[in-house]
């Protein structure tokens, strides 16, 4: 369980995170979506007690993070896979963490195995690791204390498609067993496949949140015709709003109304379907792109 309550962080006059509230329930995967610089990482650092909030609060497993006695046993955190001493071996990174948490040393090998770091890779220094290997090491570190909550910032960065697929399975499984997962991404597709709930953030503010299906519903209809111009005229005549998206026109109406409008105008359609991914994509883009991203706002 993670509860974020009106978190705000200002750097000078600039709010990097502005009045953000959401909850992550056990048994769910919450996707934390937003473009780079939207405030995802700052929010996650505030949840983990690394950045003091300007106002607001957050609790994990019912307590503010800093009051958790042995947080590694409650919460697995991966905020930046590159934040490891490059002179330590992968195995040593986990051994140090295991000693800190009081976890049995045998867990180190088990968790390295779980994330697919085996053989010579574990004895190499982190300097020689690819970003994908560092992500796997970070995930092993997060899982080391057998926590009930996972907080992962862009964990799919640097993973190959096979690795991303594997990680989705791991997170889904973790949540299905009653765990709570909060994972951030700037890529909608990455999160869409695994999340139950979505929290979309733009310019430091939550712009949409709710169940994934809920957010997907009402996304409209995707329609395509060979004569795109004629289709647009037909839709205008029927009083239907249409936005150009990558694979056609997105119409905020039921498929039936769109089909009827096209038929009335005699436009032959090449595609007509409820917009799922692209609808959410549209939402994501429209919700978060109304102001320039502030990569340097931190």
């Amino acid at each position: 369980m993670i509860e974020v309550d009106h978190l705000t962080k200002r750097y000078g006059p600039l709010p990097a995170v502005d009045d953000v509230s959401f909850r992550c329930e056990p048994g769910t995967v919450t996707g934390f979506l937003g473009p780079n610089g939207a405030g995802k990482s700052t929010t996650m650092r505030m949840i983990c007690g690394l950045t003091p909030p300007t106002s607001g609060s957050a609790t994990v497993a019912g307590l503010p993070y800093r009051q958790l006695g042995n947080p590694g046993r409650e919460v697995g955190v991966l905020l930046d896979a590159s934040a490891q001493h490059v002179g330590r071996t992968g195995r040593e990174v986990l051994t140090v963490a295991a000693s800190t948490m009081g976890v049995d040393r045998r867990e180190v090998a088990a968790k390295l195995d779980l994330v697919g770091l085996t053989g010579p890779a574990t004895k190499r220094r982190v300097r020689a690791y690819s970003l994908g290997m560092r992500q796997r090491l970070g995930l092993a570190l997060a899982l080391l204390g057998d926590p009930r909550v996972l907080i992962l910032d862009e964990p799919a960065n640097g993973l190959d498609p096979e690795g991303i697929f594997w990680m989705r399975g791991l997170l889904r499984d973790f949540a299905d067993r009653g765990g709570t997962v909060l994972l951030s991404s700037h890529l909608l597709r990455e999160v869409e496949a695994v999340a139950d709930r979505l929290v979309v953030i733009g310019n430091g503010r939550v712009v949409a949140q709710g169940g994934k299906d809920e957010l997907l519903a009402g996304a409209g209809t995707l329609v395509r015709a060979r004569d795109q111009g004629a289709l647009r005229v037909a839709l205008d005549r029927a009083g239907l709003d249409a936005d150009q998206v990558t694979d056609g026109l997105l119409v905020r109406a039921e498929a039936e109304a769109v089909g009827q409008a096209a038929a009335d105008a005699g436009v032959a359609l090449s595609e007509l379907r409820p917009a799922s991914g692209s609808g959410l994509e549209q939402l994501f883009l429209s919700l978060t792109s109304d102001a320039p991203t502030r990569e340097d706002a931190r």
Binding site: D113, L114, V115, M133, D146, E162
Partner: peptide, 11 residues
Amino acid sequence: MTTTTPAPAPP
């Protein structure tokens, strides 16, 4: 690099 081992059950 990929394993099919299930994730540990959250206690």
